[in-house]
Design a binder for these strands. Structure first.
Lengths: 144, 144
DNA sequence: CTCCTTGCAAAGCCTTTGCACGCTG
DNA sequence: CAGCGTGCAAAGGCTTTGCAAGGAG
C-alpha cells in the first residue's frame, strides 16, 4: 500500500469524503520528494485533470496540515511550501541565493534539540526545521 | 556611539540620504530587542512623528536587509518579521502555539553548522536560524 | 541645484471566503 | 438523499510600485 493510499484511507476513516480532486492533490504531494507550493501542485495536476481549482488545493492542503499529514513552511521569499509527512523528520536547507531546497538528515539536529529542551524548556518541532544559507554552487560562484 | 548611529553613518557613507523617516525606522529597529513587523515599526514611530508612511517603512527595511543591517524572517503564520543585526547571531525559538519568540545562544548551533558544512557543503546562515516548537508554558497547558 | 526619498493611491500577489450546484457515501 | 466538497468570483491581507512633490547633500 503506497503512502498516498494510507493517507486517503485515513481521511476516509475520519469521515471525510474522498473526491477525485483530493486524490489528485494527495497523490501529487505524496509522490513528490520535495516541497511544493499550492500553485505547483495545481500545475502538476492540470495535465491529468483539467478541472481542479486553486481554492480546492488550498482547502485540501489546509485539511492535510490540520490532520498532520502534511507540513506548511514559509520559504525565503515568503512563499508557502507544502510537503507530505511521509519522509519523516528532516532539516530543510534553503539556499538564500538560488532558493534550492536540500534535505539533511534530522539526526544532525538531535543534539541541538536536546539542549534546547534542557536549557530553554523548549520542545523543538523536529519535523520541520528550516535553515537558510548558501549552497555549494552559490558559494563557488560567490555571486553574493 | 549607539548602534543605530553606527547604522546611520554607514548608510551615509554609502551615499544614502538620511531622512528623519529613516532615522526613526532605524532607531526603532535597533532599540528593539526582538522582532517587529513593518506595521509594528510604524506604530512605534507614530506617536513621535505622525508623518511616516507604511510604504516608506517597507522601502527602508528592504534597504537595511539588502545592506545586511537587518534580517527578514517569516514567522509561523507567514507574517514578515524584521530585526536589526546588532545582537549578533542567535537562534529564534518560536512557539507554534502562542507565538512567543525566545532567543537562544547561537553557540548551540555551531556543531550543527559544522556538520552541515562538512556533509552537505552548505554554509548555514548563523545569523538567522529559526526553530518552531512548543514553549514551556504551552507544554504545561498542553492545549495542543 | 540635483536627484534621491517620500507620500499617496492604486495595483499585485497569494490566500481565503460566500454561495449555489454537484457528487460522495 | 443528506450534506460535504467544489468551482467561481469576489474579497482580504500584506507588500510593492508609479508618479509628482519635497528635502538632503
Amino acid at each position: 500500500m503506497t503512502h498516498c493510499h494510507t493517507l486517503i484511507s485515513s481521511l476516509r476513516k475520519m469521515g471525510y469524503r474522498i473526491t477525485p480532486q483530493r486524490e489528485l492533490i494527495i497523490e501529487t504531494l505524496a509522490h513528490c520528494k520535495g516541497h511544493l507550493t499550492a500553485e505547483q501542485i495545481l500545475h502538476q495536476i492540470h495535465p491529468l485533470a483539467k478541472a481542479v481549482n486553486l481554492a480546492t488545493v488550498y482547502r485540501t492542503l489546509d485539511l492535510l496540515v490540520d490532520k498532520e499529514m502534511a507540513t506548511r513552511t514559509n520559504s525565503l521569499d515568503g512563499t508557502t511550501l507544502y510537503a507530505s509527512m511521509q519522509h519523516g523528520p528532516h532539516i530543510h536547507l534553503i539556499c538564500r541565493k538560488c532558493g534550492v531546497v536540500t534535505n539533511a538528515d534530522h539526526a544532525l539536529i538531535c543534539p541541538l534539540a536536546d539542549e534546547l529542551k534542557q536549557y530553554h524548556q523548549f520542545v523543538a518541532d523536529l519535523q520541520h526545521i528550516t535553515i537558510f544559507g548558501l549552497c555549494s554552487q552559490c558559494q563557488e560562484n560567490h555571486i553574493n
